[in-house]
């Protein structure tokens, strides 16, 4: 048990520290790198909880895809670092308020668990038993929560289509390669071999 406890404090401490550095770092690229470190530590915490599927999904989706694009955009932006710092005090009250709301909500959830432990158990989720947690999640997601699952899929699809519609412009005068036409070309269409007599020119 002691190893698990040590590992928990390691991951939790690193996660909190890197989350703090996300807002404290002067360079936005460093912020994103610390954000990634925080994600990886959160994945470590999931593994300690025995939720290995969620841990891997966190790494694949957030670290492997979302944060890459994040980093991409932050690197491409031409940011004046000094200017970025100026607004901090101005936004502090709003940010603090949001943080406070989140904290109260978390306390409410945890408080409910502590005050009435039965309320969670009354929810008729199937006990994982000896299923691996991938299978347990799958069974839950594709039976009980199938409509929510489909709905979230639809929302993502709509968002994706929306992003494409907003950014797609058809410009005039762009020369594009049509792969089908390219592949349909034969030697006879493009090449003509002529016998040229030597000494006559041309």
């Amino acid at each position: 048990m002691i190893v698990q406890t040590l590992a928990f404090y390691l991951f939790a401490g690193l996660a909190v520290a890197s989350a703090f550095m996300v807002i404290a770092a002067r360079n936005p690229v460093h912020s994103v790198l610390f954000l990634i470190l925080a994600f990886v530590n959160a994945a470590g915490l999931f593994v300690l909880l025995g939720a290995e599927f969620l841990a891997m999904m966190l790494v694949v989706v957030y670290v492997g895809a979302v944060a890459v694009l994040f980093l991409f955009v932050v690197m491409m932006l031409d940011i004046n670092f000094a200017e970025l710092r100026q607004g901090v005090l101005q936004y502090l009250p709003v940010g603090g308020l949001i943080g406070l709301v989140l904290l109260v909500e978390l306390l409410l959830v945890v408080g409910t668990w502590v005050a009435a432990p039965g309320i969670v158990a009354s929810d008729p989720t199937p006990a994982p038993g000896d299923l691996s947690n991938t299978e347990a999640l799958g069974r839950l997601l594709f039976t009980k929560y199938v409509y929510f699952f489909q709905a979230s899929g639809m929302i993502l699809l709509v968002a994706m289509v929306g992003a494409i519609v907003l950014t797609l412009r058809s410009r005039e005068g762009v020369r594009r390669q049509s792969i089908a036409r390219q592949n349909a070309r034969t030697r006879a269409d493009t090449l003509e071999i002529r016998k040229v007599q030597s000494g006559t020119g041309g």
Binding site: F53, M56, V63, G64
Partner: peptide, 12 residues
């Protein structure tokens, strides 16, 4: 249990 996902995560 999630060996393939681990590999996929690491390679990503």
């Amino acid at each position: 249990n999630v060996g393939v996902l681990y590999l996929f995560a690491i390679s990503s």
